[in-house]
Simulated assay, not measured.
Amino acid sequence: MTDALTLDLPNIETEQFHIPKGEKLNRSFSGHKPRFLLLYGSLRKVSYSRLVIEECARLLISMGAEVRIYNPSGLPLPDDADADHPKVQELRELMAWSEGQVWCSPERHGAMTGIMKAQIDWVPLSLGAVRPTQGKTLAVMQVCGGSQSFNAVNQMRVLGRWMRMITIPNQSSVAKAFLEFDEHGRMKPSAYYNRIVDVMEELIKFTLLTRDNSEYLVDRYSERVETAEQLSQRVNQRSI
């Protein structure tokens, strides 16, 4: 989906981006571009959460990242289909591929949308030896039809913590989103737009700092104890 994006950023001073290049990083760090999965929470023809996500994609690509946007159209309700459904498999593969994520949802009835929640509910904490979300960075955003509020981003922070993700401190809430985009679906210059730039810049920084240590960050004492007990039980069973 990102292939169709126009990547020009006429309202942003890209020379002000402060993202370290690979040669400036510790040599033990990964040299590939940071990988981000972007999710949005509305299927309307004019979806402002999708338009925000597309702006985020342009910014991340301009900052040196690799980006994938997941289209939730056709994703079944959780437990209403098997896990081998193509849209579920696509989502889980992208989750595993990513090193960081951006979630943007409209606020509907004071909460994130069911479309956003369904995407997260299809992703377990672990898939065999693969942990699709644990230790990965997350930025949360919302769009509002009226005055600015933070109900959806607060809920998504809870979800991010539950999925054992590193949810960055900065966030974005765009009030009266229908006023913030032009006829071409591009975000107008504003404090809201600058805030989104700040969030994307912070997301990349946190990702570069943590992606090579994600396994260490989610390594838990209780899980090590459980693994040791299971190993001991298998050894005892073999010796009987």
Rank of each mutant, 00 (worst) to 15 (best):
N213L: 12
T207N: 07
M95W: 09
R164I: 09
K45D: 10
S232F: 10
E223C: 02
V158I: 12
E93F: 10
A191C: 13
E223S: 07
P34Y: 02
E226T: 13
R92M: 08
Y221Q: 08
E54W: 01
D80M: 06
Q16V: 13
H32W: 01
L231W: 08
S47H: 03
E99T: 13
T133S: 05
E99I: 12
Y48R: 04
I115T: 11
W97A: 11
D198E: 15
L39W: 04
E183P: 01
Y192C: 13
N194L: 15
K21L: 09
L208Q: 03
V102W: 02
N236T: 07
R50K: 10
S232V: 12
E55L: 08
E229M: 00
P132E: 04
A177Q: 08
P169Q: 12
L9W: 03
I115V: 14
R68Y: 00
T210E: 02
M63R: 07
Q119Y: 04
Y193G: 00
P78S: 06
K205D: 07
N170E: 15
S190F: 14
G100D: 11
S190H: 14
R211L: 13
Q142V: 05
D80E: 03
Q89V: 14
L39R: 00
V140G: 12
Y193A: 09
H32D: 12
E107L: 03
E229V: 05
M163L: 15
K33N: 06
C56A: 11
M200S: 00
R211C: 10
G135N: 09
P10Y: 05
G100Q: 05
K117Y: 05
R234W: 03
L77P: 00
Y221F: 10
W122L: 04
G74F: 11
K176E: 13
R234E: 10
S105N: 11
T113W: 06
Q142Y: 02
